[in-house]
Every structure is written in structure tokens, then in C-alpha cells.
């Protein structure tokens, strides 16, 4: 019994340490973003000396007014791109996955293998050809340029394919006898049945799109068309970074992910666990 108690205490301590390491950056970002005079807080690197009377919302006001709302055009870009990306990705991937799982057609196996084999190709090796492609299509600096190349990924298709395989085909036959078309079967019967799959994929794709950095950095080259992640790093510079804007901006960029996370933790974790395959 004593050993059990000791074990409990030890594991609690270890986990608390890990949790502390995970969470300090957020606490630090949040508190520091409220300090208006950054020179009081750190000279070279962070130091945790924050007094009550330093706190205020001036950084956020500055973020709002700076460069005629530049930050908020980034925010808007991020929101639009996230929504477009998620919607397209979930819609088309679910269609492909469902189709490949439910219908028999010539060359089906070959197509599935082709789709899955692209899962092995890392996007980093594709950035140069894709960039040239986007340039040829005149999609640089557009939302479509960021969204389209990766919207339908083999991983999402695979996920929906696996999920659709668990669904019963009897529903389809019953609906067909009642005179339901194939598209209506998908929209009215299968989508409600695949709701859990949709939920976790929406969450996964939305967080990926929101946090994506490399691809928006390549496609977006105009100040106004940056996404949040790309825009934020422009505040960093070798000649002294603008920490006031940086910290406030970082907090604003994290909040839209953290709040839904606390609202539906389980869905998030499930979705992200699946998504790890994507790397």
C-alpha cells in the first residue's frame, strides 16, 4: 500500500514537471504581452520579473492600429484560408474515400495504391515544382495558391476510406429501392453516418491550416497577403525584434486554437492522433 502511494506521488511529480515545461511558454507569452514597456522585462533573453503595475492592454491596441490594421488583414487571411482549406479538404476527400470504399469499378485497387503511395512523399521535396506550378497558374499571392495544392491529401482520403468501409451497404440498397439517387445517398445518408470522421478531420485540417508555415511563406510574398504565422515572423529581425507586437500577436494567434480545444478536447486528441501519420 505504501508503495502505491509512493508511486502515485512520484508520477504526479514527474507529470507536473512535464506539464510545467509545456505550459510555461504560454503563461509567459500571455503575461509579457500585457507589459507595455518591454525594456523593463528583459535585456537579452527572457527574465521573469514582472510587476503588477507594468501590466496593461497597450500592446493589443498597438497591434490593432499598427500599419493601418496590417495584423488584422493577416488574421483575416488566416481565417479565410483555414475555412477554405478545411471545407475543400473534407468535402473532396470524403467523396473520394467514400467512392473508393463503396463502389466497385475497374482499376479501383490501382487507384487506391496510387493514392496511398503519395502519402510517402514529403511536401518539402515538392515545394519547388509546386511553386513553379502556382506561378504558371498565376496563383501566387492568392488564397487559392495556398489552399489548393494540399487541400486533398492522400491521408485524409485514406482516413475516410477506412471509415466508410465500416458502413453497411444495405443502407445504399434500401435507399436505391426508395428511388434515391447516388448523390442524395451520399449527402443525406452517408454524411450523417460519417459524422465522427468529419468531426475529427475538420479539427485536424483546421489546425494544420492555421499553423502551416512553410507553404504560405513560399506563396505569399506581399505584405498584405501574409497569413498570421508568416506575418508574425516578420516582426523578428536581426536588428532587434518588435517584441510588443510579437507577443501580443502570438497570443492572438494561439487563442483561436486553444479555446475550441478546451471545448472539445476529446475530438481534438483523436483527430490529431490520426493526423500524426501526416508528420
Amino acid at each position: 500500500m505504501k508503495r502505491k502511494l509512493l508511486f502515485r506521488a512520484a508520477s504526479a511529480v514527474i507529470l507536473a514537471c512535464v506539464a510545467l515545461v509545456s505550459l510555461t511558454p504560454f503563461v509567459y507569452l500571455l503575461t509579457t504581452s500585457l507589459v507595455s514597456d518591454m525594456s523593463l522585462v528583459f535585456k537579452n533573453g527572457i527574465a521573469l520579473e514582472i510587476q503588477r503595475d507594468m501590466l496593461g492592454l497597450s500592446n493589443y491596441l498597438m497591434l490593432y492600429t499598427e500599419n493601418t490594421g496590417l495584423f488584422f488583414s493577416w488574421f483575416k487571411n488566416s481565417v479565410v484560408i483555414t475555412i477554405m482549406f478545411t471545407a475543400l479538404s473534407v468535402l473532396f476527400s470524403s467523396m473520394v474515400g467514400y467512392g473508393a470504399a463503396m463502389y466497385q469499378f475497374k482499376g479501383k485497387k490501382f487507384i487506391i495504391v496510387m493514392i496511398l503511395s503519395t502519402m510517402m512523399i514529403p511536401i518539402e521535396t515538392l515545394m519547388i515544382p509546386l511553386y513553379n506550378e502556382m506561378r504558371a497558374f498565376h496563383l501566387l499571392n492568392t488564397y487559392a495558391g495556398v489552399v489548393l495544392p494540399f487541400a486533398v491529401s492522400s491521408f485524409t482520403i485514406y482516413f475516410f476510406l477506412q471509415y466508410a468501409q465500416t458502413l453497411s451497404k444495405d443502407f445504399m440498397d434500401a435507399a436505391r429501392i426508395d428511388g434515391c439517387g447516388e448523390i442524395r445517398i451520399f449527402a443525406n445518408i452517408m454524411i450523417p453516418l460519417m459524422k465522427p470522421a468529419f468531426a475529427s478531420m475538420i479539427i485536424l485540417q483546421a489546425t494544420t491550416a492555421w499553423n502551416d508555415f512553410l507553404w504560405p511563406l513560399i506563396v505569399m510574398s506581399k505584405n498584405r497577403s501574409f497569413t498570421l504565422t508568416v506575418g508574425l515572423q516578420t516582426y523578428l529581425s536581426p536588428y532587434g525584434s518588435n517584441y510588443n507586437l510579437l507577443f501580443a500577436g502570438a497570443v492572438v494567434s494561439v487563442v483561436p486554437v486553444i479555446i475550441p480545444f478546451f471545448a472539445c478536447q476529446k475530438l481534438f486528441m483523436e483527430g490529431m492522433i490520426m493526423g500524426g501519420i501526416k508528420g
Binding site: 507569452l29 533573453g45 489546425t207 508574425l232 510579437l246
Partner: peptide, 25 residues
């Protein structure tokens, strides 16, 4: 859930913190 939160943030936010975390002061 506490341990899990960092996975939700973008690398930029993490980088901002860790640049200062590892700075020379």
C-alpha cells in the same frame, strides 16, 4: 490535455518563446 497543448501551437509562437529562452542573458 496540458501536455498536449503545445502540439496545437504554430512553430512561430514556439520559436518566439524559445529564442528568448535560449538567449544569452
Amino acid at each position: 490535455s496540458m501536455i498536449y497543448i503545445p502540439a496545437l501551437t504554430s512553430i512561430i509562437v514556439a520559436g518566439i518563446y524559445f529564442r528568448l529562452f535560449f538567449a544569452g542573458g
